[in-house]
Design a protein around this nucleic acid. Structure first.
Lengths: 229, 229
DNA sequence: TCAAAATTATGATATAAATCATACTTTTGC
DNA sequence: GCAAAAGTATGATTTATATCATAATTTTGA
């Protein structure tokens, strides 16, 4: 039921899979569940396979020294994680941690790369995916360089909405601590706390239970556009 | 002669091209020269083709408002610029400007995508290229978030060295104004001026004629690693 | 279920870097 | 070759945000 809603097998691999190959994938995949707060993989782990999220949510992040962390991106059902091109790097440069209980499917690298070999359409789709991710990440660099924290927070909230959608009460469908928000925006949790407070006082957003709801999306978007250093 | 040194046709396309297709590429390509300071293409231009640099150097950059600029990356002979996945976006999200007189070859999008269709190995190589670029750009986001300006400058200089190499006198083979350096690092030209001055006073680098030379590469690398906000 | 741990809000203070300002130097284009 | 434009160095001032500190609230797990 849950799985039905989440369309657990609607990922880039199955979407570009020839029907006759699908059974082979099914025979080679492993399913697993990772509990909230537990790692899917960690920085410096040897890369042995690739994961597709079936349900749940994961953060992809990187530590710096002991305290500083940066969240690279969030991933949800349908997303692929842990693949970064040919075997070049043998260890993950990032960690993946479940934000809630998460179901995944796993394919080992040899099988996945064999699949790429026999399926140019999949390779093409992956190329397009990475090209688009690259563009989004370049935009993030630009935002980091030229936007103030408040604008970056506004942008982050809008991005979360696009990415995760909203539930019946209007709340964006992901729960995030202030610290996770800070690690995503590139600031401290104190600054997040204060600035979220401001945005609430200005009636642009509402928050509850670690969730955000947009009250004035247009104004928030305007803030994100005009908030230049 | 110049062209010989620069290996103008050593790009990802030719490297993954079947011999029998190469002549077709040659027949479809256009060669052009862009003068220093002139645009190869500009933000919002309609995307009609893709460029490969044969010799010279180009910056890929993005304006913000009127004054702020961010340099996304630098490109040199062999690099492909202007392609960002399938036709999705019909306009360039970035500009490309020649940093010195630059020779390019141009292929129109229909021909280039036809080439991708008949050549899965090229698609595969492109996918790998974007995946690696993505990883490098994610590192830049992290640096922006967690490193101070001085460390980011150190990192930028080391990156330039890897990318462009050094000449006989030990200078990195690219000339950059303080403003371009600032736009790349994500700071102001005044801060670049001051900080470069510091690095010189500390005898970590030398500069001349808009070029940098490394004096103590290890110390500079250590600075880049430890310089956390 | 309750104590410990994690998270959040909010104030006070410190600081890196932006901004403003000026003089000097180098490059460009006619 | 020279005047105008672009680029550079350096000082003074301001400001956004990090850091430090404390108390209140929520979550977790034994």
């Amino acid at each position: 039921m849950k799985e039905k809603q989440d369309a657990p097998d609607n990922n880039i691999l199955y979407r570009h899979c020839m029907p006759e190959w699908r059974a082979t994938v099914d025979a080679n995949r492993q399913l697993l569940v990772v509990k909230k707060g537990q790692p899917v993989f960690s920085e410096q782990d040897v890369v042995k396979g690739v994961f597709f999220i079936r349900w749940g949510k994961v953060k992809i992040h990187q530590r710096w020294g002991n305290e500083k962390e940066l969240i690279i991106r969030f991933a949800k059902n349908g997303d692929m994680i842990g693949y970064r091109g040919l075997g070049k790097g043998k260890v993950y440069p990032v960690s993946a941690t479940a934000l809630e209980d998460t179901g995944l499917m796993y394919l080992d690298i040899p099988f996945f790369e064999a699949t790429l070999q026999v399926n140019p359409r999949l390779t093409y789709a992956l190329m397009d995916f990475y090209a688009n991710e690259l563009e989004a990440t370049e935009k993030r660099v630009r935002n980091m360089a030229h936007m103030e924290v408040k604008g970056r927070i506004a942008e982050a909230i809008l991005m979360l909405k696009d990415n995760f959608g909203v539930n019946d009460e209007g709340y964006i469908d992901i729960r995030l601590t202030r610290q996770d928000m800070a690690s995503f925006v590139g600031t401290t949790y104190e600054t997040i706390s204060r600035t979220i407070g401001e945005l609430e006082a200005e009636k642009l957003i509402r928050t509850s239970d670690k969730r955000f709801a947009l009250l004035k999306e247009k104004q928030l978007a305007k803030l994100a556009e005009s908030n230049v250093k």
